[in-house]
Design a protein around this nucleic acid. Structure first.
Lengths: 351, 351
DNA sequence: TCAATATACTGAAACGTTACAGGTTGCCAG
DNA sequence: CTGGCAACCTGTAACGTTTCAGTATATTGA
């Protein structure tokens, strides 16, 4: 009967946004009951439950995130940790789209946590864990012995990695099978008669550097081809550095007649370097490249490509983190996607 | 003297993360005093202030975002609203980097709010405003009469737009001067003797569509060149659509001898279409294109380019939103960046 | 009939912060 | 010696939510 005094939020429904108190006033129930009714708690009568949910829908009730977060510690936030100067351009947009697509169906927000050249990659991770700013984290540029993964595991922060680790610790990941990619690439080049192959590798230090190198080496010995060293550059180098280096190598006596490239932008540089040296793609040398959007064929139809789907990676990683948060076993949230076949140019249908 | 009972957070300093209560216990002050000391309130003694801040730094105190948000309504969040299927790839990564770079120095987090094909562009905006999920918003794909801008203005949500509106309403924006871009592009083509020009425009509906068209038309009449209609496609069309359409146009009797393209990926398609028709870039036709990263010259050295810096746009937009939140006049936070000159290929120094 | 029990609901407390409305103390003017 | 004031500090309440420990009522079993 002192409801009037207590529920000063009654009139609130007109001015501010509705809260549990507003709903309690409108339904004549207590806020506890309303709170439980909204989450289908069993001790609330079926009719009451329906009634509360109906009113909530009608007036467009949305739980206040700060309230929930303060009370429960749950943030409803997933953080995507990105290196702001080394990530591949298309990687960023596609992975964000993939993650967004999954989070859109949930109450989760996506926050982007950047770190740059100058910073310790651990810094954003520590920040997230210490401040509890996210319920889950997605990281890329994964290393075999990755201190970020170890730290999050130790501190009970659910996460997923783009790329695998190799520390004997189990956690969700999504990875493209770069071992298979490199093997298929070499096989394809070999099948075209190419015998002296160079690899533009991922940056040393990342896990898939090793996968790529091993696949390359394994296939070389399988097909009996040889390697022309090209390890002074990686896809983390600038376009100009790769271009210059390629031109140098191509001017040598013992030059490669085939390239395997781990990134599309780098492939542009390789081709430019080849042509700087006065040689011709498809005649003097062939190139197999990974790409994440279907543009390389426009650049040079002679290029051979393998597609890596970053958007899929994003949605997969998001689902994994949510799964872990939801209590699934981290070991069940690991996915290695097999490379599609090496593709040659197929001209557009209508011409 | 019932401090022991009251400050149950005293021992907390050992287990959880420190709060104001922890600091209050350690300094022997009240939490109110600590709170004010940390924000340099004038009614706190200078010595006390220093002492509190020292202790806070020592134990790594970080204000709890949920607490602040619940109490004050401030979220310390900026939301970047993105269309998940139409945005230009490099736009997304660069603008995120630009925004991040600015927010990194502040307590603000960046959240990415996506919307897709199927959705009303207003939906994410309404969500953000209604739930108060952000203190400021950045939007792109701005329209002359943009309901999102109008809505946010009406509801007092600070925001900045990438691109201008044209509704007589004043708000922060960052825009690339596409009028000048189109004029310079046409002038350049004219100076090379090109007289029949086609424009691959931005999607109709966006503000810079008009700017681009006007610049194109103005320069055409200035130099006395004529337009070959090419308005059945825009940069929002697929690569294949643009390519096919270009090839069609280039096979006609009265074909263009010059193109102006508003996006780099689309330019790849145009060039492919030109070559599909058996014509040669630089001989039969020239193309001026915008690009946001320096890759087009690798594609075809004959391409003429103008650079648009999306990272700059991002940092600029972030600064504008923060400025508005901080009380600056929205009218003072508008920036139109002039296009750089049209650039032809300059070969790498060392070859 | 009475006690035990299940059902449906409730108020109070707490999460960490800030705003509000004081409360002490010391000093000075009168 | 008193009243007033400035300087400095403090407790309480509130933001919206969930959890805990209930309470009231109806239902059941003996």
């Amino acid at each position: 009967m002192d409801r009037q005094r207590t529920d000063k939020n009654g009139e609130n429904s007109a001015q501010g946004r509705p809260t549990l108190k507003t709903l309690a006033f409108m339904t004549g129930l207590g806020v506890t009951t309303v709170s439980r009714a909204l989450k289908d708690a069993p001790e609330i009568g079926a009719e009451t439950r329906r009634r509360v949910q109906l009113v909530a829908k009608q007036i467009g009730y949305r739980p206040n995130r700060a309230g929930v977060r303060l009370r429960t510690g749950r943030t409803n936030v997933i953080s995507l940790v990105l290196n702001t100067d080394r990530e591949i351009m298309s990687f960023v947009s596609d992975i964000i789209y993939g993650v967004s697509e999954v989070l859109a169906e949930t109450p989760y927000h996506l926050i982007v946590t950047p770190y740059s050249r100058s910073q310790d990659p651990m810094e954003p991770i520590r920040y997230l864990v210490e401040t509890g700013s996210a319920d889950g984290v997605i990281i890329s540029r994964t290393q075999p012995n990755d201190p970020r993964a170890r730290y999050m595991l130790e501190h009970g922060m659910p996460f997923a990695t783009h790329g695998r680790t190799d520390m004997g610790l189990v956690h969700p990941y999504h990875d493209f099978d770069n071992h298979v990619f490199a093997m298929e690439a070499v096989r394809r080049l070999a099948s075209m008669g190419r015998r002296k192959l160079a690899l533009l590798s991922p940056p040393p230090g990342l896990t898939y550097y090793g996968h790529t190198l091993n696949g390359f080496a394994d296939a070389l010995s399988e097909v009996g081809a040889s390697e022309i060293p090209f390890n002074t550059v990686s896809i983390d180098h600038t376009i100009e550095q790769i271009r210059t280096r390629t031109a140098q190598v191509m001017r040598r006596e013992n030059r490669p007649d085939g390239f395997v490239s781990s990134a599309a932008a780098a492939t542009l540089a390789i081709v430019a370097g080849i042509e700087d040296a006065g040689l011709k793609l498809g005649r003097d040398v062939d190139v197999v490249s990974k790409q994440s959007s279907d543009l390389l064929h426009l650049f040079r139809p002679e290029l051979l490509v393998v597609n890596e789907n970053f958007r899929l990676a994003g949605s997969d990683l998001a689902r994994s983190v949510l799964g872990w948060i939801g209590g699934a076993a981290p070991g069940s949230l690991q996915r290695l996607v097999a490379t599609s076949e090496v593709q040659a140019f197929s001209p557009p249908v209508s011409v």
